[in-house]
Design a protein around this nucleic acid. Sequence first.
DNA 1: CAAGTTATCAATTGATCGCTTGAATAGTCA
DNA 2: TGACTATTCAAGCGATCAATTGATAACTTG
Lengths: 221, 221
Amino acid sequence: MEIRQSNREALFEAIAVMGKALASPRRLELLDLLAQAPRSVDDLARVSGQSSANTSQHLQALHAAGLVDREREGTRMRYALAGERALRVWLTLRDTSAAQLAEVERAARSYLGQEVDRVGREELVDRLRQGDAVLVDVRPPEEFAAGHIDGARSIPLDELERRLGELPPDLEVIAYCRGPFCAYAHEAVRRLRAAGRDASRLEEGWPEWRLAELEAESSVA
Amino acid sequence: MEIRQSNREALFEAIAVMGKALASPRRLELLDLLAQAPRSVDDLARVSGQSSANTSQHLQALHAAGLVDREREGTRMRYALAGERALRVWLTLRDTSAAQLAEVERAARSYLGQEVDRVGREELVDRLRQGDAVLVDVRPPEEFAAGHIDGARSIPLDELERRLGELPPDLEVIAYCRGPFCAYAHEAVRRLRAAGRDASRLEEGWPEWRLAELEAESSVA
DNA sequence: CAAGTTATCAATTGATCGCTTGAATAGTCA
DNA sequence: TGACTATTCAAGCGATCAATTGATAACTTG
């Protein structure tokens, strides 16, 4: 009886190991970055503006919680999200907190700036099939290289104005980035509009698209 | 630029509010109980073996994180899981930790005892349609009253032997309980087998069944 | 092998968390 | 109104956590 109870406690304690990993804003930021592409420790440290030592510690915590994998690559360590499951945990937490906590909504709106026109997944597919829109991935090129929506072309946000000429002038531009809480696509649409182009953003980003693909595959199989 | 950064940090901090709520084994246990049925504070305190004050504090933390709702009911406060979203967060965390962390698997096996035959959702539906099995909910009656699988009959675990006669002797008994990490159905099957009955357990419990129903509804709509 | 890079470790500090205890509050019912 | 119950509050203590700093270890390249 006593044994039963301690086993039960041990079970919740073991689950809480993963919960604890989700309790720090820094670690969530690392998960968010890793959802785009695998990266090295000090790459992540630089992008997230933290010290290497601190970043390394957080990555080890995420690893111990089963949320990220790691692999030596010569002199550096390559960290990556631990598969579809880890991605689903992060997106579920993010979306649920956005739905349930007014403060998340508020912080997101404040970070993203003025809202712009947006299209959903099905509308995007239709538009591309009809050929009256072009899909642009405005994330940094390494992230595009690590994976992107089929049919997208890569124009990082900071090259957008310079490379406007590459975009067929008669087509609407649909931009996407890291996800619904990433400011890149919003900013891209605002700049495209300022340049006189017809533009809108895809509601979701690459991680959401990819998870949907993975889930569609496994439900077929 | 600075403003942008602080907004971005604020966003992750706001999301981490929900993450922090998932960082304590006690709170996870409360979520697990609330996934079965709404309950009052000291009901939860009694069932989870904690002091009322401590339980109340944890429930307030879960409430502040948007994971549980509460409502006054006369002299007591009725806490309930905050809808489908909160349920999905908890089940996702639980299942992902079980898949990714060996320690969770180990703790679960140790808590559940010897494995018994099990059937999946589709098999259950087939068997019930064919009429060669009877579905039994072995959870406490309050939980059955708060919601159960359509077609199930309620026989709480501690009344099982006494009420064996209620079960048609020529049918296999399929038992279910709070979920895959609840020991009731396992124990019920072992006792039924010991009594000479053909028995197996449903792989999932009521919360998983309910979430699947809710998701099916919303994907149709 | 030596120099340089990348990652981790170890020790420390201040902050936060978890739980207990005892008191205060809100609501019910005789 | 007064006794009673359920819940919350407030203070306090020990444990854990987050971040910094400086040192160490692992690996590559010249």
